[in-house]
Design a protein around this nucleic acid. Structure first.
Lengths: 347, 347
DNA sequence: GACCTCCGATGAAACGATTTAGACACGGAC
DNA sequence: GTCCGTGTCTAAATCGTTTCATCGGAGGTC
């Protein structure tokens, strides 16, 4: 007996305890765990029996300290409350699962400080790689991560220099699709309802909207921009109230929103103030989240392949981790307009 | 010069490299990291300088191997696509952040196998504790975790034996509130639209509905139950079609749905099939997710304090981690009915 | 000047796993 | 009988950090 750790209680069993119980050496236990084919059947069974009896749980810290690598990836998401990002996360997760890695989700909640804390911690954990939808894609901390050896893939954003892999969707094109559609169905006064200009997507989608407007030869002043604090449902409602406040002859007959949360807020405010969609105001959203189709007036939206976005991002990361000859790649997906009742009238 | 690791490239710098560069011993570097007040200012600055120059990043594996504890919690969520759970997660996160711990989110996606893999991995990581909304609260793996020394708090479920802390909401009461409200506003034929009976919440909310119905002295056969495969928007739409198929004299005038996703699906199907809410069908949801209020017919729903649920769960876990005299506690919150247009008509 | 204290810094010993070089036994071939 | 190969298992070194007992020197007291 002596001073061996008390059975089952105080401290969890280590390989040493297992070895002692099974009457073999440390190395043999390790072989049972990592290269079971090298161990004779009888010994292996004895060791496995000992592990079960002691409730042995491998210590991942020790393992990764010795081997220098972990079995996990992380996705630092911009807003866990936006279904778009949780769908992207699901795509990532499936790819990670297929590769036998586990995925940690972190939520920066749009705050740089929080994002920074997560990144620092993940770097200390020595995760195999990090996927991130950054608050600011040009944040130097991201370069620093990469320079210090943690592969990073940027999701749903691109970056000027191409020192990273990234996966994004062509937001300028998405903006064009939305506005071309509104022009097609006859609108000649349109509002672009965008989140803060600091967000790259908001800028790009607005840019696409303006391009489509100009190419149709329509006067720039008839495409007005409503800028919101944040791309949220509440901000969408507020935007609705500002629209109503406009004089009738300047009031747009349609709105293109930078994401579906804004569009849903706007939709709600419009209907609850007694106007109709699309009769009084046609609405186009962006992202095509599940709740867009499920809205009482199903929302026309620009669909992003969010699942594929996540999956592809994870694949790029895995390639960067595994292949020494990896070359950075910027993948850009093409968005697609899904027309529904909010611009077409009752179907 | 000699054989010191190449500056900045191959392998990341360790405390040993920092010590060599700063001309101090290992222990001093460690003191700078952990007990800076014990180190004289000049030495400390020299060490900090060396850390910056070398791009030193503390190795968390080594740290937690030595100290035997990590700085992280984990929440294994049932469905990252359901805003209810992401809101709970946010509550947890705030509490974890306040305690200086980082939070890893894992998504079991309703699958036991995935949940099990996450739990095993988290246990190997030696996280400080695990919060979980389990697929099956009676899963023996949860007991095993706890027995092996990883504190577990069950979120949004309770468990027969009280060997865990848990935080939940009184679902029977929630069911009663919903149905009492429908009776109050005059409904005498009601449908309970629930997910699979295997989910505890679905059972409890249905039970509450039946209790309220019985206490009002209404005939049991006028409270019908529609059972769905899963509590999702798509299933809600399907339920709507089944309702329409019922003969008019048996068709309910109101529906109580086990969660808001179902309710939103049902709402959409009802409206797009040309009927009105609440005129032809009043609808009550459950959870009061943000999209419930933002639906074009704002949804009456049973609000759960999802933010507090998460926060309280995290606090219980932190107490269990920190206080040796900790006693398990089952917290039950009280739900609250939020009446909106889907049962009250246009406001 | 001897003695004590205090402060700051040191060095070695862990933590628990993996890995590698080698020991040992057992047959079979020559 | 010797030698070699093969199949198993062992022993020791190692990963990067923290901790703890210790040590040297500066300064104060008698």
């Amino acid at each position: 007996m002596a001073i061996t750790p008390a059975a089952g209680s105080s401290r969890s069993a280590s390989v040493k305890d297992v070895a002692a119980t099974a009457g073999v050496s440390l190395g043999t236990v390790s072989n049972v765990l990592n290269r079971p084919e090298r161990v004779s059947r009888t010994t292996r069974e004895r060791v496995e029996r000992a592990m079960a009896d002691l409730g042995f749980v491998r210590n991942e810290s020790a393992r990764s300290l010795r081997t220098g690598s972990t079995q996990s990836l992380a996705y630092v998401m911009l807003d866990a409350g936006n279904p778009f990002f949780t769908d992207v996360a699901r795509g990532i997760e499936l790819a990670a699962e297929a590769a036998g890695l586990s995925l940690f989700l972190c939520n920066s909640d749009g705050r740089s400080a929080r994002e920074g804390a997560h990144l620092a911690h993940l770097q200390q954990q020595r995760v195999q790689g990090i996927l991130i939808t950054p608050v600011d894609p040009d944040d130097p901390q991201i370069d620093q991560l990469s320079a210090r050896g943690t592969p990073v893939v940027i999701v749903d954003r691109t970056r000027a220099g191409s020192s990273f892999c990234s996966v994004a969707v062509d937001d300028v094109l998405g903006g064009r699709l939305a506005v071309e559609h509104l022009i097609d169905v006859g609108h000649r006064r349109v509002a672009y309802v965008g989140g803060p200009e600091s967000i790259g997507q908001v800028r790009d989608r607005g840019e696409g909207a303006r391009q489509a407007w100009a190419e149709a030869g329509l006067p720039p002043e008839d495409l007005i921009t409503l800028s919101c604090d944040a791309p949220t449902v509440a901000a969408g409602r507020a935007a609705g109230e500002r629209l109503v406040g406009l004089p009738a002859r300047r009031r747009p007959t349609a709105a293109f929103c930078a994401n579906d949360l804004l569009a849903l807020g706007l939709l709600q405010q419009t209907i609850s103030s007694g106007r109709t969609v699309p009769g009084d105001l046609a609405i186009v959203g962006y992202d095509d989240i599940e709740f867009a189709a499920a809205a009482a007036v199903p929302l026309t939206s620009v669909r992003q392949p969010r699942h594929d976005l996540g999956r592809r991002a994870a694949e790029l990361l895995l390639d960067e981790v595994g292949d020494p000859a990896h070359e950075h790649e910027q993948v850009v997906f093409t968005p697609e307009l899904v027309a529904r009742a909010s611009t077409l009238g009752r179907s």
